[in-house]
Design a protein around this nucleic acid. Structure first.
Lengths: 197, 197
DNA sequence: TGGCAACCATACGCGACCGTATTGAATCGG
DNA sequence: CCGATTCAATACGGTCGCGTATGGTTGCCA
């Protein structure tokens, strides 16, 4: 038998990151109001006592979750977006990448739900601004006017937001459309003018 | 001086409908969790005592709000949609009407936020199903295949949902697109094939 | 082996909101 | 004018989650 010491301490001890991770998952699945200290502790098999050793408050946990989210948002964009020279391809890659990352889409939808929250709001606003700016730029690179590019960017972003919102609220309705990539294709075709053959 | 009786009873007495109306407004502005009995009573200048005379519970109030909403959803569709013979016009009218009703759009967005709630979920699901079915039908009337019509309907609905969600979370971002009708035009043009000139 | 630091449990007080009871005041029909 | 009805205030007990205080284990290290 392995020399299990008296109390294996369930988990070899919880790290701050473990709390943040668990909180993020809970947030994505059940929303911000669900990321509460006591229930979270219960789910992790410990009590509040542990939590308040790692964090000053629930507020601090939420801030940490949001920071982590914003971090790998930027990271993602940087890697995926990279420098695709052809503007048509770049735009389509952008669209497909966005819709394919379902996990992130769900998390984003969950955050949108709590947009009223004073901690969530700034993070969400920054994300939205970045994304819309990226879209604007991408559409302008196609030769569209600013106004037109702005409209299409908003349209694309609304379609993104709405898609994951619907996926959250009424998954059955979305799944009735059997083919996601067909959906995104349609979106891309509707928004991205034909390349100059 | 007008013969003000001893206690003019602030408001000439609150009706059940007044509570429902106030709750609906609060819901649209601050979400479901904000429609709480005590705060609501405070806002109306009375106390819980009054509320629990008109309603059995908070739950009953919420049900009432949802029922009222579903009621005039159907009513709206019936009147607006009416029988426009030409499928192209019908579809465009539908789209414009949906985006123009900002009040209802905001209320819808607020409900979407609380889609997890066991009372909201069914109402929201029914609304979504009705709307998608309407969209499917309208696109099929243009001669599109079912699959294609389904995709476009979902796209249009996602754009609708997402638009009002963005309006809720980050109004500045939306307002940067100066022209709403331009936006909707773009959406319509992208989705509705040219009429057979 | 004593001691300190990391990690966690337990117990408590607090505020917000729900729902219940009970009482009070205005109003209307007879 | 009076009693019943309608509407509302007050006071209470209960739940859930936050945050604090305090004490208990474990592990490492001198």
């Amino acid at each position: 038998m392995a020399p299990i010491s008296k109390k294996p301490r369930a988990n070899p001890t919880l790290s701050r990151e473990a709390w943040v991770l668990a909180a993020t998952n809970l947030l994505a699945r059940e929303g911000l109001q669900a990321v509460a200290v006591e229930p979270l502790a219960l789910a992790l098999g410990v009590t509040k006592g542990s939590f308040y050793w790692h964090f000053k408050s629930r507020n601090e946990l939420i801030q940490a979750v949001l920071e982590a989210w914003e971090q790998d948002q930027s990271a993602d964009v940087a890697t995926r977006y990279g420098g695709i020279p052809d503007p048509h391809r770049r735009l389509r890659v952008l669209l497909f990448a966005a819709f394919e990352d379902v996990e992130n889409g769900k998390l984003f939808a969950a955050l949108t739900v709590s947009a009223q929250d004073s901690r969530v709001e700034p993070a969400l606003r920054r994300a939205t601004e970045r994304r819309l700016a990226l879209g604007l730029e991408a559409f302008q690179a196609l030769g569209l006017s600013e106004e037109e590019a702005r409209q299409r960017a908003l349209l694309a972003y609304a379609a993104y937001t709405g898609y994951f919102q619907l996926l959250r609220t009424t998954p059955e309705a979305v799944e009735a459309v059997t083919d996601l990539s067909g959906y995104v294709h349609r979106l891309a075709d509707a928004l991205v003018p034909e390349p100059p053959t």
